[in-house]
Design a protein around this nucleic acid. Sequence first.
DNA 1: CGGCATATTAAACACATGGCCAATAAGTCA
DNA 2: TGACTTATTGGCCATGTGTTTAATATGCCG
Lengths: 195, 195
Amino acid sequence: MTPSRGPGRRPGTPDTRGEVLTAARTSFADKGFERTTIRAVAASAGVAPAMVHHFFGSKEDLFLEALAAPFDPRVVLRPVVEGPPDELGLRLARTFVTIWEDESRREPLVALVRGAMTSEPVAAMLRDGFLRIIASVLGPAVAGPDPLLRLQLAISQGLGMELFRYVVKVEPLASTPPEELIQRLAPVLQHHLRG
Amino acid sequence: MTPSRGPGRRPGTPDTRGEVLTAARTSFADKGFERTTIRAVAASAGVAPAMVHHFFGSKEDLFLEALAAPFDPRVVLRPVVEGPPDELGLRLARTFVTIWEDESRREPLVALVRGAMTSEPVAAMLRDGFLRIIASVLGPAVAGPDPLLRLQLAISQGLGMELFRYVVKVEPLASTPPEELIQRLAPVLQHHLRG
DNA sequence: CGGCATATTAAACACATGGCCAATAAGTCA
DNA sequence: TGACTTATTGGCCATGTGTTTAATATGCCG
C-alpha cells in the first residue's frame, strides 16, 4: 500500500491541482454529477479530500472548471459555416462526430450533456451558454423560417446519437465507425438546416 | 397544519400504495433518481417514509415499479408497422410525439431516459428491455442494410428532441406545437428507416 | 365478539456526504 | 538565516440519506 504520508507539503512541485481536475473530469463524465463524490475524486488523484476545497471552492466550482472549454465553438464551427451551403450538413456532421471521437474532448461533453439531464444549473449552462453560442455562429447559415428550431432539432439529433453511443452504449451504434455515422448524419442535418 | 395523526392504521380504505407510486413517478421524472429522496416522496404522498419500504422493498424497487409499463410498445407500434411504407416515418413521428404529449406517459419515460443517463442498471433496462422490444416490432418495417442501426438513429433523434424539449427546456423547441414537431420529424425518420 | 393480518407511525441506526479547521511540511524570498 | 506563503493532511461537524424496529391503530374473518 502507499506509505500514507502525514500532513505537510509534498517535496518537489507536483501538479496536484491538475491531477484533481483530470480525475474530476473523468468521474463527472463517467458517473455524472450527483454520483461523483469529492472523496472519490481526491482518492483517484491520490490526495486528501480537503485539497479539492483548497484549490476549488466547492463541488459545483469543481464541476464548472472541469467542464470549461472542451473547445471553442466559434473556432470549430467557422469552417462549417464558410463553405457551399448544400454541403452544410456534411461539414457539420463531420465536425461534430470528429470532436466526439476525441476522448479528451468527449469527456467534458459527456459530463455536460449528462449533467444537463440531471441538474438544472447545468441544463442552464447548456441552454444559455453552449447552445446560445452555437446558435449565434451557425444561425446565419440556416435557411428558411424558424432557424433556431431547425438548429435545435439538428443538434438534438447529434447529441441523441452520441448519448446512445457513449452513455447508453447500445449496439450496433456504439461500435459503428465514425465515418459511417457522418454519412448517415449528414443528409439529416442538411434537411433540418436547409430542407 | 395537518393534525399529525399518531401511528396505527388509518380509517377507511385509502389507496396509499398508489399515491406513493404516483408521487414517486412524478419525482423521478422531475428530479431523476439520485435527487429523489424517499422522504420527499413519502411527504408528497402524505405518509411516513417507512411506508415506502413497507409497500416496495427498496428505493430501487420503487424506481423499477414506477417505470413499469408507461405503455406496451407492441400494442402502440402495431398500427405504425401496418400501413404504407412510404408513410412509415410520419406514422412513427405521430405516435411518438403523441405519447410524449400525454403527461401520464411522459413522466415514466422521462424518468427512464434520464435514469439511463445516470445509472447503468437503468441504461440496461432501456437498452435490453425497451429498445429491444421496439426493435423486434419495428425491425421488419425497416428497409435496407443495418436495420438496427437505422432504427437506433431514428429513435435517438426522437429521444434527443424530447430530452431537449422537456428536460433541457430549450426555446423555441419547448414551446413548439406537437403537430409541427411531427411534420419536422417525419421526413427525418422516414429517411433513417427507409432512405 | 376475539384474533390475526395489515397499515401506519415515530424513533433510531448506520453510514456517506460536503464542507471546514487547525496543525504540519515544504518551498520562496528578503 | 528567518519570515512568510503555500500545499497537504487527519479529524471533525452538521446534515441528509436509505433502512429497520417496535409500537399502535384499524380492518377483516371466523
